[in-house]
Design a protein around this nucleic acid. Structure first.
Length: 540
RNA sequence: GGCCUCUUGGUCAAGCGGCUAAGACGCCGCCCUCUCACGGCGGAAUCAGGAGUUCGAUUCUCCUAGAGGCUACCA
């Protein structure tokens, strides 16, 4: 009895051979610089910014090289699988408009020739290769008790710390046919483990596109390739799928560097060609002590991509921010090409920054301000309404109730200006920003008497201005008569001779109308509010 | 415990053996006769520490420290 018999014993249903599988996955027809990349998330119920970051890198590599981008859903961990999770994944991807060349639709239709693009539908394929490895003596059935969950693992690890042996050979690695049969007859379930050929003292060199040449201890562990429920863990699925699907470059987080030696040994055992790895840094945040820590879904709302949607950041702002983290050349490129779409920016995988970026909301806000500054008032209005329809329905009704008015609000200090205002970084903040448009503000004057004097005088001769210049002339006249300086130079030379300068006079009007000391050009606001409302606000 | 990765101003960073060590965000000051914003000008602020290689190290090597990752029938 040999390995072939053991293989047939444990995989009686598997009749296909790897060759037959390969026939279903013909080699892709590619030019030499075209990349085939993939996004391979496991559906967890949210899209994490770190995963999205990888997706976005892959997206750019594929698009910039005229290559192929596909989506593969890695739903092999049934314990973590959540209902609706896949829907969430597709929803978020769709919102950001990341389009894939190949994927499976939500209702289960495969688009592309290399499917199924969902791992839970590929179990038959994995088994064929697992059986082959068993036949060749490169893998074996293991009947040991499972380790499950983090706590098990921690305990296991502690017990291992005492041993100096680098090998982790499994007790079941040399079971005879009879022993396997006996376990089976007892009704025991089994997993399939890879049988490492290493002894624990070998070293291995491998290449990472971002980090360069790496060296590490070679794998010396009989790791699982098929769990007892018949599904493969990450390593095995990765080897099979990325080979069959013709991936040319694997973008994944740097937490996988440590397991790369195991993956390489697996590829070799399967007779597969190695695929280029591109281990990108994880995204971090700074904690209170100033240390880095992985951005986490528990404490950092911005780790969830929905954060940006809910707060109304334009997609392009998020993309530009991500690009900024991917490559420091982007910022310079952007400066030199202020009007081009970010999609025009090309980068090579080896140019991806090797150091862990820290998520910086302030920086994102700055980028977002610049993106929003390129919008016309009308565009901004439309985006605002679209956002509000989903996240602030009452506001959406108000905005839609007077399209002309609110388009004007959005146009203030924007349309017809070579250098528009840059103080809006998301749609959510706009309601607060323009609160004085929606309702009369509370006005707090530091010098109420003086303010009233000026406002009364201004109101007395008030007529709706037709231009900014006209408006300013009116204010100057009224203020001048009351003893305000209309010439700032004169005022600076001798401030005591005046009640204040024209800026002071404007401040009173501004506070009366907006409740704020800062606002867009007052003339525009008066124009939007209309004569009646303006008069009301001027009388205090 | 072992293995691996990373370390330039507050943050993001350029640099790839020879520089007064770019630039961006943030901060501060000045200018721009309504504020804010925009814009312009200017300012403070950085090579984790220690050895070594070299005529010369931010750059190469080693050590130390710090941060992070992996060490699951999770990805």
């Amino acid at each position: 009895m040999n390995n072939k018999d053991i293989a047939d014993l444990i995989f009686p249903d598997v009749t296909l051979t790897p060759e037959e599988i390969f026939k279903r996955y013909p080699k892709r027809n590619l030019q030499k610089d075209q990349y085939v990349t993939r996004f391979a998330p496991s559906p967890t119920g949210l899209v994490h910014i770190g995963n999205f970051f990888q997706a976005f890198i892959s997206y750019n590599l594929a698009r910039n090289s005229n290559g192929v981008l596909f989506l593969r859903v890695e739903d092999t961990d049934r314990k973590r699988e959540k209902a609706e999770a896949k829907k969430v994944l597709y929803d978020v991807l769709g919102r950001f408009g990341l389009d894939f060349d190949e994927y499976q639709t939500l209702d289960g239709k495969d688009i592309g020739d290399y499917g199924p693009y969902v791992q839970s539908q590929r179990n038959d394929i994995y088994k064929v290769f697992a059986k082959k490895l068993v036949e060749e003596g490169k893998a074996f059935p293991c009947f040991c008790k499972k380790t499950e969950g983090k706590e098990d693992v921690l305990k296991l690890r502690e017990s291992k710390f005492d041993e100096n042996d680098e090998r982790e050979y499994d007790p079941c690695r040399d079971l005879t046919y009879e022993e396997v049969k006996k376990h089976l007859d007892n009704g025991e379930t089994f997993a399939i483990r890879f049988k490492t050929k290493n002894k624990g003292d070998e070293r291995i060199k491998f290449k990472d596109i971002i980090k360069g040449e790496l060296e590490a201890k070679a794998n010396a562990k009989d790791f699982i390739i098929l769990k007892s429920d018949g599904t493969p863990p990450y390593a095995f699925a990765h080897a099979i799928d990325d080979t069959l699907m013709g991936t040319t470059i694997v973008v994944r987080g740097e937490e996988y560097i440590a397991s790369a030696p195991a993956h390489i040994e697996l590829f070799e055992a399967l007779g597969f060609k190695l695929i280029d790895y591109c281990h990108n840094p994880l995204i971090y945040k700074l904690n209170e002590q100033g240390n880095r820590r992985k951005i986490s879904k528990r404490y950092d709302p911005e780790s969830n991509m929905m954060f940006f949607i809910e707060n109304g950041y334009p997609n392009d702002a998020v993309f530009e921010y991500l690009l900024n983290m991917i490559s420091s050349h982007f910022e310079i490129w952007r400066k030199n090409n202020p009007t081009l779409n970010w999609r025009e920016f090309k980068f090579k995988p080896n140019e991806i920054t090797a150091v862990t970026p820290i998520f910086d909301l302030v920086k994102l806000n700055d980028i977002s301000k610049n993106v929003i500054a390129t919008y016309s008032g009308e565009q901004l209005y439309n985006n605002w309404v679209k956002w509000a329809e989903e996240f602030d329905a009452p506001l959406a009704e108000v905005l839609k109730g007077d399209r002309e008015k609110y388009t004007k609000v959005c146009s203030m200090d924007r349309d017809g200006r070579p250098k528009p205002r840059k103080d809006i970084y998301n749609y959510k903040m706009m309601k607060d920003k323009f609160h004085y448009i929606f309702e009369r503000p509370v006005s707090n004057f530091e010098e109420k008497e003086k303010a009233k004097e000026l406002l009364d005088a201004y109101l007395q001769n008030f007529k709706m201005p037709t231009s900014n210049e006209e408006w300013f002339e009116d204010v100057k006249q009224v203020a001048g008569k009351l003893g305000y300086a209309t010439d700032n130079k004169l005022y600076k030379e001798n401030p005591d001779a005046f009640k204040g300068n024209i800026a002071k006079a404007c401040e009173f009007i501004r506070i009366a109308i907006t409740g704020e000391k800062d606002s867009p050009t007052l003339f525009n606001i008066i124009e939007i509010l209309g004569e009646e409302e303006t008069r009301k606000r001027l009388s205090i």
